[in-house]
């Protein structure tokens, strides 16, 4: 069996985002790039099935050349080989999902894991689009999973509204979106990093995979949230300050 994992390289969440002058992108100079944290759960989920299912784990990423670092990290954690899909022009979730789906189908994977969303744009669409293109079932926000005794399917738990847990039974093939709490991702080990350099990492072009499919959404502009307004300073003697504070809380904020 082959298991696929979809990963995305994203800015570290502690990064202070600075927009480019034209507002169409972010300044990458000082950005520390990391694997999308939800994808780490997906890599771990796949690696835990690697032995029990005698599976080859193939990790995919659609991204620029620097995304190789993230693929190498997945290989260092224990994935067997990696595929980077290069896009000449920016792709939306629809085109990204299409390109990944074609690459997955060609690889022979029957089970695909990914993070429930990427923490850069938080769109959370690619997994579902991949599943749709492949006509496979998809369950996302998985926080527990078990492979069936006969290795012929998988049970997935996902939280639903009101504290309810949905339990979904799936056969293979399937796509699963992983959430925090599903497992504790392993750290890449030093020998793992050494071995990762020898593992196959191939590159494909998105235009070869897309066969004419083009993006539906074109990004126009980024903008940062408005600055928080300056605080108000109340000064004076204590009685006067208290009176001003009460007036303000009562008349403007309307909390008392």
């Amino acid at each position: 069996m082959k298991i696929g994992v979809l990963v995305k390289q994203v800015p570290d969440t502690a990064t202070k985002i600075v927009l480019t002058a034209n507002g169409r992108g972010i300044e990458e100079g000082n950005v520390k790039w990391v694997m999308n944290p939800y994808d780490e759960y997906a890599v771990e989920a796949a690696l835990r099935l690697q032995g029990p299912l005698s599976a080859e784990v193939v990790v995919f990423s659609l991204g620029p050349a620097r995304a190789v670092e993230t693929l190498r990290m997945a290989l260092a954690m224990g994935c067997d080989r990696a595929v980077r899909i290069h896009a000449e022009t920016p792709l939306d979730a629809f085109a990204t999902g299409n390109a990944l789906a074609v690459a997955i189908a060609a690889s022979g994977c029957e089970l695909v894991f990914g993070g429930k969303q990427a923490v850069d744009d938080d769109a959370g669409q690619v997994l579902q689009i991949v599943a749709e293109v492949l006509h496979w079932p998809v369950v996302s926000v998985a926080n527990q999973l078990h492979v069936h005794a006969g290795n012929d399917g998988i049970t997935v738990h996902r939280p639903a509204a009101g504290g309810v847990t949905e339990v979904v039974e799936l056969g293979f093939p399937a796509v699963i979106g992983c959430d925090k709490g599903l497992n504790t991702p392993r750290y890449p080990s030093l020998p793992g990093i050494m071995k990762a350099k020898q593992k196959p990492l191939t590159e494909q072009q998105s235009r070869d995979l897309l066969g004419g499919v083009s993006p539906h959404v074109v990004l126009q502009q980024f903008s940062l949230p408005p600055d928080r307004p300056a605080g108000r300073k109340i000064t004076g003697d204590p009685e006067n300050v208290a009176q001003q504070l009460v007036d303000w809380l009562h008349n403007e904020i309307k909390v008392i």
Partner: peptide, 25 residues
Amino acid sequence: FALLERAAPEMHALLDATIVAEHPA
């Protein structure tokens, strides 16, 4: 890696557990 490999024969079984931290988190 080379330093650890030659440190002690008993280290070999533990090398896989070595934790590498490359990102701020």
